[in-house]
Design a protein around this nucleic acid. Structure first.
Length: 766
DNA sequence: CACCCTCGAGTTCA
DNA sequence: CTCGAGGGTG
């Protein structure tokens, strides 16, 4: 759909040329493609290579002369049948790459199997079991047996092009072996870094003074994402070497209808498909097995559970698939995973490590949180050195002492959690953690917010550096003003003293008054990300860095970060009122309450002038939030924030708002409808989807409940989708969502309304 | 009084 | 993304 060039009126005679050229382009394109199919189809070519090349050259010439005629899929854009691809360009998979449902116990596995057997009716079900590789999912697109693109999984619909790097691996065939390849087939598999090669790589990195990789998975991901251009010859050699160390194992196909697959290859089972793939020269795991009985599958699961280290790659769990392809079709898939396969996930790995210390940190709300500092250790695929301990009661309850060997795991495979001490390994040197009485950052006596609270807080909200830093970070965060170039590092730099000066920001009141002169001289201590300790120069003085200046020809000028941040701040002044409300860190006022207040009152002045009753009358605001607002405005330095921001040009009002009580335009196609969006939705950003729901008069909730009318689920949807299914809430996709926004819920009818039983009628893959 | 919902914190890696 | 805490609503 390239736009027709309409900028300059063409002389008339060119129209004739253009017509002739267009005809010739079409003729050449067709001929070249036909010849290419012939060639890659394995047949003898009917023209000489020279003639073929001449045709391609002529086509190229014409396309250059008339750029409007060039099609995306033109043969000139492809080489030897493979598109000239750009590293990391988006690639749409021909068939959606689904994920797998998980089971976490043999019971759940048995439940899954029982359901499959039940749904299979009279068919005999055999199970194929294979190792679940902890690597990167990759989709290889072969057309007529020629590799066209290799792409990462991405969100399942669109991935990133990594063809160039995959080809460097050397083990992925550019041309499939054998004959009679389908016009299009996608081969799915996993790219990984063999554990042994990984250890070698890290040893080399260490010797070279380079950073080491946390785990094989990251190393694989990092290697595949290397760009070769603009690198020295030496670097390029290293990159190639690393990529050459990657391996791939394939475990499935896509975009080739089963009926055609069976006709072409005779394969009727997944295991036979593996033989076909092996015949094509693709790497297949040696560890898969086919079983008749579930008990055997469970045995397989146990066997590898005890020997996870015995295989060349990291094992995530076991994938169990129904072997019969006919059953795949019959069982189908939900919107995110096939019903004919499931992944048995091994329980989260638990490891022992040393508890070196318990340190207390203070967040933006002043809450003092103790966290464990441990000997760095690898758990479930990443390295961990810290874990929260929530509060002193939790520390006591877990019974851990500083110096203990502790058991660590990752809850939900993500959040590190200290389970408890290994008491037998105590030697008497351990000591108990004592909650500090004073704020570790500013020395103010800690105290509970109210009588009986377990959490201790630093009451020095105005000038505790930790809290000021936290609030500045919060103001800039995505949920508030979304100031891109003001992140963790800049927030810290702005709020910390640097010798010999005071910090540019004593509180957030001065945020919009910052000038280049204020920030240019800022110097911050460089800390080692590993230890958190200041880095030192050779002479023992702490190493300093100046984030907001750079030196050009011996002249000190503002850095890109400085210029960008100040411009971002300037631009932020016009952001909507509710974002400023969120940024003020008023207790209980998050994005939802802030929006309600902004819609109702239209300006901060109106909110400030409102009584407790008037505030509490706003939907979603009750007495407690009303009190929190009133109390907030009682504090002098809070008022100063508002005044100084106003003076700097912040409006604190919604233009055109009629004033207090003005009801937001009711009506709209989604009036009274609650919608929850989850996963990535084509055509919408996460926030964009919420905005669209609100704009249509609907309610955008963040959690699924009985009151939810619709859940819009895209690829990557997590637990919310499951919850929606459980509650029988109607699930729609991005396309239906667009219809919903445009025409309202009535337009979606024709499908099932209300509780859908078990999600019948979902489209199946393929 | 029983849900249902929002807030806030923590973590890790690309 | 997940959880716990605590507020709001019916």
């Amino acid at each position: 759909m390239a736009a027709t060039p309409a900028e300059s009126p063409l002389p008339e005679k060119t129209d004739v040329d253009l017509e002739a050229a267009e005809a010739e382009v079409a003729r050449l394109t067709e001929r070249i493609l036909a010849l290419r199919d012939e060639y890659y189809g394995g047949n003898a070519s009917t023209v000489s290579d020279a003639d073929y090349d001449a045709m391609v050259r002529r086509l190229d010439e014409l396309e250059r002369a008339h750029p409007g005629l060039q099609k995306q899929d033109s043969p000139t854009q492809t080489v030897g049948g493979r598109a000239q691809t750009t590293l990391f360009a988006p690639v749409t998979h021909a068939e959606r790459m689904l994920s797998l449902d998980n089971v976490f116990s043999e019971e759940e596995l048995a439940e899954w199997a029982a359901k499959v057997v039940r749904d299979a009716g009279s068919h005999t079900v055999r199970f194929l079991s294979e190792l679940k590789i902890d690597g990167l999912a990759i989709n290889l697109r072969y057309e007529h047996g020629v590799l066209v693109t290799a792409a990462t999984r991405g969100d399942g619909v669109v991935g990133e092009d990594v063809t160039q790097n995959v080809l460097l691996m050397g083990t992925i065939p550019e041309r499939l072996a054998g004959h009679d390849h389908p016009p299009l087939v996608e081969v799915r598999g996993e790219i990984f870094f063999p554990v042994a090669a990984f250890d070698e790589l890290n040893a080399r990195q260490l010797a070279a003074g380079e950073r080491v990789f946390a785990n094989p998975r990251n190393a694989a991901s990092g290697s595949l994402r290397q760009k070769v251009e603009n690198k020295s010859v030496e670097k390029v050699r290293l990159v190639r070497e690393r990529i050459a160390g990657l391996r791939m194992l394939v475990h499935g196909i896509g975009a080739w209808p089963v009926a055609e697959l069976e006709r072409a290859t005779g394969a009727t089972t997944q295991s036979e498909v593996y033989e076909v793939l092996r015949g094509w020269g693709l790497p297949i795991s040696a560890h898969f097995r086919v079983f008749d009985r579930l008990e055997e599958v469970a045995g397989y699961v146990r066997e590898y559970g005890g020997n996870r280290a015995s295989v060349e790659h990291q094992i995530d769990g076991i994938v169990v698939k129904v072997d019969d392809l006919g059953l795949h079709e019959e069982l189908g898939a939900t919107s995110r995973a096939p019903r004919w396969a499931t992944a048995y996930k091994y329980p989260p790995e638990e490891v022992n490590t040393k508890l070196l210390d318990i340190v207390v940190s203070v967040g933006r709300t002043g809450r003092a949180t103790p966290f464990a500092v441990m000997q760095k250790v690898e758990v479930a695929g990443s390295e961990v050195r810290q874990a929260t301990l929530h509060n002193q009661q939790v520390v006591k309850a877990k019974g851990v002492l500083i110096g203990d060997t502790v058991v660590l795991r990752k809850a939900g495979d993500v959040i590190p959690e200290v389970l408890g001490p290994v008491i037998e390994l105590r030697d008497g040197s351990e000591r108990e953690f004592v909650m500090p009485e004073d704020c570790p950052e500013c020395g103010t006596r800690l105290r509970p917010a109210k009588e009986g609270d377990i959490d201790l807080r630093c009451p020095n909200a105005r000038s505790c550096p930790a809290q000021v830093r936290g609030r500045v970070e919060h103001i800039a965060s995505r949920g508030a003003l979304d100031i891109e170039m003001l992140g963790e590092v800049s927030a810290a730099a702005l709020t910390q003293p640097f010798e010999p000066a005071e910090p540019p920001l004593a509180t957030e009141a001065g945020l919009f008054d910052l000038t280049v002169d204020d920030i240019l001289p800022i110097r911050v201590v460089v800390r080692d990300p590993e230890t958190g300790l200041p880095r030192q120069n050779a002479d023992g003085t702490p190493r300093l860095m100046t984030p907001f200046q750079r030196t050009v020809k011996k002249e000190v000028v503002p850095s890109a970060r400085a210029v960008g941040m100040l411009r971002n701040l300037e631009d932020a002044k016009t952001k909507p009122l509710w974002r400023f409300l969120v940024g003020l860190s008023i207790r209980h006022v998050g994005p939802v309450a802030a929006r309600a207040l902004a819609d109702h009152f239209g300006s901060l002045d109106a909110i400030r002038a409102a009584s407790r009753e008037e505030l509490a009358a706003v939907e979603g605001v009750g007495g407690i939030i009303a009190d929190a607002l009133l109390e907030w405005f009682q504090v002098d330095w809070h008022v100063e924030i508002v005044e100084r921001w106003s003076a700097a040009g912040v409006r604190f009002s919604t233009p055109g708002h009629a004033g207090p009580g003005a009801a937001a335009a009711a009506g709209g196609v989604l009036a009274g409808i609650t919608v929850v969006a989850t996963g990535s939705l084509e055509g919408f950003s996460r926030e964009g989807a919420q905005e669209a729901i609100l704009a249509a008069g609907g309610k955008a909730a963040s959690t699924v409940s009985k009151k939810t009318d619709f859940v819009v689920a895209g690829p990557g949807a997590g637990s919310k989708l499951g919850k929606a299914e459980a509650l029988g809430v109607r699930i729609i996709d991005a396309a239906q969502f667009a219809v919903l926004l445009e025409h309202g819920p009535g337009a979606l009818d024709g499908g099932a309304v209300g509780p859908a039983d078990g999600g019948a009628g979902e489209q199946t893959a393929g």
